[in-house]
């Protein structure tokens, strides 16, 4: 991990944000089924203003994760999120590729 990759690495970004005194949540893909855009272990980091870095999907569910992140930053309670294309109502925050993912969302500190 050199300086160039450091600026793009979500966990390095999370550390810098933390050092700036910002509240940060870390989302991690912990399981995938079927075709999923980002592999297990991928991170999205979010601050209390809604700034984010990294990805847990190809942009399909990031909006929903960011909304949940505000709650997690507030409460400090981690939660497990699940996304897929199970039904019509799930469409808005579903994965168009047909896969299913579980995302662990936690507060930093």
């Amino acid at each position: 991990m050199d300086d160039a990759t450091d600026t793009l690495d979500p966990l390095a970004v999370a550390e810098r944000w933390m050092d700036d005194g910002r509240d940060v949540a870390v989302a991690t893909v912990v399981e995938t089924w079927g075709s999923a855009p980002r592999p297990v272990g991928s991170h999205l980091v979010i601050d209390a203003e809604g700034n984010f870095h990294g990805s847990v999907s190809g942009g399909c569910v990031e909006g929903a994760v960011i909304t949940e992140a505000f709650d997690v930053i507030g409460s400090g309670e981690p939660r497990m999120l699940e996304f897929g294309v199970a039904d019509e109502t799930a469409w808005r925050v579903g994965l168009s590729c047909g896969g299913r993912i579980r995302v662990y969302l936690e507060r930093l500190g």
């Binding site: 991990m1 966990l11 999370a14 550390e15 933390m18 507060r107 930093l108 500190g109």
Partner: peptide
Amino acid sequence: MDPHILRKLNADRR
């Protein structure tokens, strides 16, 4: 996620 552990993790990766 523990802040100290994040620092340690990033240091190990670097």
